[in-house]
């Protein structure tokens, strides 16, 4: 055991790279199986069977889908702006993966902190990267040089920036309580009481904004099938479409991970806080708790998608600008007022 820890101490770079690799592999695996879970749960809700033929319970369906995507012909329409058309899926995907860098997904495992980069400006990193996601979608819509993707892209840009605002407002209360922008500190602050109980309004705004930011129902106007065919990815097929799909689910995962970290105590056991006594097993347990919480929130994403009808665009914008934005401001003022009154003189 001690030898192992010693070995880890002399190879911090190797450990860090392994950590990055493992995080990416877990993310991609989660994406694959969230897609399957979504299809199975949708089937359950709509009283049908869903994919159950490939492997036991359809568990090999993601593999089959992946192989199919790889072998599909790549139709590149003649009128597209080729460079941006090819780049757009990748540009959408990378920010979704990058946001995960500052999220602590466990305490420590054999002395190694379970976070890729513990930036002291964690939340700024998250917001700056998350807002890059819109570029991929707008580029896809614009470079396709076709009407439906164009409208999808432009809708998406207005929607995402509007809700980004509410999202930014909603977390300010959290950081006023914590007194730091570092994500590990945010988790540490919640050892006795989760922030969702101290910032319920903030959480509500964040949750709704997360749905809008990930373009999920009830806010999936950028790709609303009945009016825009496929929205910004109408002209995409084969692997390029798969990358958009991957990005959407990766965005859901990072949004869930963010909510776990900001509002649900991160990797900590509910209500107990958990004092470490055995470094190895506690570390594993903490990672398990983090991912258990993350999966619960993913289920909420899936459940909402099959339960709620789509908003109209004016309703969406009104909700963002006239309800959640003022509500976010009020939440900040209220938090500031309470904190100032509580402060010792």
């Amino acid at each position: 055991m001690n030898d192992l820890i010693h070995l880890i101490a002399i190879t911090p770079w190797a450990i860090a790279l392994v950590k990055i690799g493992v995080v990416l592999v877990i993310m991609l695996g989660l994406v694959a199986y969230t897609v399957l879970a979504e299809r199975r749960i949708a089937a359950l809700i709509q009283d049908r069977r869903g994919p159950n033929r490939v492997g036991p319970f359809g568990l090999l369906q993601p593999v089959a889908d992946g192989v199919k995507f790889l072998f599909k012909e790549n139709v590149m329409p003649a009128h597209v702006n080729k460079i941006y058309y090819v780049l757009a899926p990748t540009i959408t995907l990378i920010p979704a993966l990058l946001t995960f860098a500052v999220i602590p997904f466990g305490s420590t495992l054999g002395g190694v902190p379970m976070v890729i980069a513990d930036l002291n400006v964690g939340v700024l990193w998250i917001f700056s990267i998350a807002s890059l996601g819109v570029y991929g979608i707008v580029l896809a819509g614009w470079s396709s040089n076709s009407k439906y993707p164009f409208l999808g892209g432009i809708r998406s840009s207005a929607q995402m920036i509007s809700y980004e605002l509410s999202m930014g407002m909603s977390v300010i209360g959290v950081f006023m309580l914590v007194g730091s922008l570092n994500m590990t500190r945010v988790v540490g602050y919640q050892h006795d009481c989760w922030l969702v109980f101290k910032q319920p309004v903030g959480f509500l705004i964040f949750l709704v904004a997360a749905f809008a930011e990930t373009n999920r129902l009830p806010f999936d106007l950028p790709e609303s099938e009945q009016e825009l065919v496929g929205g910004y990815h109408t002209e995409y097929g084969s692997m390029k479409f798969a990358l958009f799909f991957l990005a959407e689910y990766a965005n859901m995962i990072t949004a869930s991970a963010l909510m776990v970290t900001l509002f649900f105590g991160g990797w900590q056991f509910p209500f107990i806080g958990f004092a470490p006594n055995h470094p190895m097993w506690n570390g594993v347990l903490h990672i398990g708790i983090f991912f258990a919480k993350l999966l619960c929130l993913m289920l909420v994403f899936i459940w909402v998608r099959w339960m709620f009808p789509r908003f109209r665009y004016d309703q969406l914008m009104n909700l963002g600008w006239k309800v959640f934005f003022p509500l976010g401001l009020a939440n900040i003022l209220l938090t500031a007022l309470i904190l100032t009154m509580q402060a010792p003189r």
Partner: peptide, 9 residues
């Protein structure tokens, strides 16, 4: 490390 993650991503 974030640069490395960007590369892997």
């Amino acid at each position: 490390l974030i640069g490395a993650l960007m590369l892997f991503g």
